[in-house]
Each structure stands twice: as structure tokens, then as C-alpha cells.
Write a protein that binds this DNA or RNA. Structure first.
Lengths: 132, 132
DNA sequence: ACAAAATGATACTAATATGGTATCTTTAAC
DNA sequence: GTTAAAGATACCATATTAGTATCATTTTGT
């Protein structure tokens, strides 16, 4: 089971490339050429990032996308949340009562603990840290 | 994203019930009545557990399934592996080169670390510990 | 012997999530 | 006004997940 889905992956690659590339406004073509991501899919992804305020889009000839958030401020989990929703690793065990004592069950505690740890670790990963 | 899929969940509920129930051979009907799991789906799951040596099946009238492994010895990860395969949380990032220095990238290290931790914690959860 | 009650084996189907395409509209530069 | 870009949105393909259906085989009890 993967932690990262493909659109998240593509989004991160695109953002990384945008930072490395350095130009102010980067057109989709440039990303497509370099990252080998299918253009319409990537466009959809970039539109989402635009709506979420990570990128700012510019229409018309010469248009493209500008990164408007400091790479130090973009967390991996931000991008994951955008494309995958919240993590919720510990969900379905307790929808019904597998466990005799739902409230105090050590499994629930442990799964919560695991999830907390994963979130904590992921939260420490910034876009900037992926480029070093 | 869930860590546990439905068949794993059902399998664990069934095993827990079997332990609590206490009788030597438990028929599917009993599990279906108590756990509200669709019978044909549960049967498929139990057949798998039989093949994997967690349960032993008995055919014919009065048949059913017997738990043949000590609940202390059944790990949550055993059941997860059976129905979901290995975890592989850190897969797809490095199929292609998102990262300039694949070998030493701190992200890879951190994802590995996360996965190791999750596996370590999950490995400490036995069927018996779910019943206490 | 035979009916009943159980699992074994296996193929099929339905629902959902994922990974895209296609198409048309709007905007901006030249 | 033409061209090159993004916006919006509907659609489609594939894979995974969840579940059904069916028939064969085995065992028990009469």
C-alpha cells in the first residue's frame, strides 16, 4: 500500500522542477517536456494547486504558473492533503465493535500512536528539503 | 487512506470471535450471525485462512473451522500480509528521479524510517492483545 | 444408501477509486 | 484578430475492492 498517490507524486515533481528551474512563470509545456507527465493530467493537477493557492496561474500567451509559496513553507502533507485528503490510517477498525472494550482497547491506542508518528514525521518534510 | 482493508478487518473480527466463542469447531453460520459479515465473502476469507494455516477446516455436516494457531502467535501483520500483501508505504517516490540525489536523499531515509516504525509497531500487535 | 449440512473451488459481477482524455471557453500578448 | 496560454467540465479506461453465484466434494446421521 502506497502512502503517496500518483497525482501527489506528480504535483511534487512539478513543484520541485519549478523551484529548480528558477524562472518566474513556467509554462506547462516546460514541465511536460522535462517530467514526462501526460499534459492534460498535469494541467488538472496544476489547476488544483492554483485554486489551493500554491501556484498562481497566468492566462493567455506567455502564461503559465508561478510558485507563490516559499518552498520552506510547503509541507509534503499539504500536498498530500490536497490530492489524497487526510491520512486516517486508523479508520475502519472501530466502525463496528470488533473489540470488546472499544474505549480502552490497546489497539486503538497503538494505531493512533502510529498515525500521530507518521503525521509528525511527514510534517517535517518540506518542499525545500526535497531539493537539497 | 486506510491501513486495513475490509477483508483483513473481517478476518480479524472472525478470529477474535472464534477465540472468544471458545468452542473447538465453529461453523460459518455462527460467525455470520454474530458478525454480520456477508456469508459468501466470509467463506472466501476463511478459506484463505485455512490455506494459510491459521484455521483448519472440517467439511461435511457439523463441520466448520478451528483456530490452530495460538492467539499470542498471530500477529496483526500476518493477517495484513495475507490479504493485503506487504506494506511498502515508501514505494513510488523513487521510481523516477524526482530528487536530484536519489542515493542520499533525506526524504527516502525518512520514508524508510516511517515504514520501519510502522512495521515495528504493527508487529507488536497480536490477536491475543486485541481481546484483552 | 441417501439426505442434509457443511466446506472447496472457481468464475462471475458490482461498486469505487484511480488515472487519465477531450472539448470547449476565456484571457492576454503581439 | 490570431495565437498561445489557462479555466472549466464532462467524459472515459483501468485497476482494485467487495461481494455473489454455482456446483462439486465431504462428512454425519438415519
Amino acid at each position: 500500500m502506497k502512502l503517496i498517490k500518483r497525482d501527489t507524486d506528480y504535483a511534487i515533481r512539478a513543484l520541485c522542477f519549478a523551484v529548480k528551474d528558477g524562472r518566474d512563470i513556467i509554462p506547462v509545456s516546460e514541465l511536460v517536456n522535462n517530467l514526462k507527465i501526460p499534459r492534460p493530467f498535469l494541467r488538472k493537477i496544476l489547476q488544483v494547486l492554483n485554486k489551493r493557492g500554491v501556484l498562481k496561474s497566468f492566462r493567455g500567451k506567455g502564461g503559465g504558473f508561478r510558485l507563490v509559496v516559499d518552498p520552506q513553507e510547503i509541507l509534503l502533507t499539504d500536498i498530500m492533503k490536497i490530492f489524497q485528503g487526510p491520512l486516517n490510517l486508523n479508520e475502519c477498525f472501530f466502525k463496528k465493535d470488533i473489540c470488546p472494550n472499544k474505549k480502552t482497547c490497546s489497539l486503538k491506542k497503538r494505531l493512533d500512536k502510529i498515525e500521530k508518528y507518521v503525521l509528525y514525521e511527514l510534517d517535517s518534510i518540506t518542499l525545500a528539503s526535497l531539493l537539497k
